[in-house]
């Protein structure tokens, strides 16, 4: 039978191990934005995130190929030179689930992210920047897809 002392030091050890692995919620992370990922239109997406309608802005960029050979792997990047960005989002207009990815920007990273997404068909893709003061800006680009990306 473990003594209380042993049990306390054991759980402290486990907590230290978890903290070392970065699994303890020491930083307040936003809960998973399920409503945002369920949004099917730009209007729904913006509403689910609780922000105003976006305005197009040249300081936000969405990078990607003009023609994607394989819709299952389309490299897209979003970035902005605007200061005071809180979040950067990548969205594909004609995907069943419009929002692909959402990045929380901190002072320690640049507002510049690249990833690869699936696109079901040729569509507009958007980079959306949500600023600390609640303003929302976006950039869009058309990406043509020759082979759809959802296996269908």
């Amino acid at each position: 039978m473990q003594t209380r002392r042993e049990m306390l030091s054991r759980s402290a050890g486990v907590a230290a191990m978890l903290a070392g692995m970065g699994l303890l919620p020491s930083v307040a992370q936003a809960a998973y934005a399920q409503a945002a990922f369920d949004a099917k239109t730009m209007a729904d997406l913006v509403k689910s995130l609780g922000v105003s309608a976006p305005a197009e802005n040249k300081a936000v960029t969405i990078t990607g190929p003009d023609i994607a050979e394989n819709g299952a792997v389309v490299p897209l990047g979003c970035s902005t030179t605007l200061p005071g960005v809180k979040r950067l989002l990548i969205a594909v207009e004609k995907n069943p689930s419009m929002l692909c990815a959402l990045f929380d920007v901190t002072d320690a990273v640049e507002a510049n992210f690249n990833t690869r997404v699936k696109m079901g068909q040729s569509s507009n893709v958007f980079a959306i920047a949500i600023m600390n003061d609640g303003k929302v800006f976006f950039a869009q680009k058309e990406v043509k897809v020759t082979l759809g990306g959802c296996g269908g």
Partner: peptide, 23 residues
């Protein structure tokens, strides 16, 4: 120190790639 968090949807590609810059 946590420098970046991201939330992804199902439309990110299989075997996901991610690139970012840490200051």
């Amino acid at each position: 120190k946590v420098v970046m968090t991201a939330q992804w949807g199902p439309s990110v590609s299989k075997n996901p790639f991610l690139q970012f810059n840490v200051k």
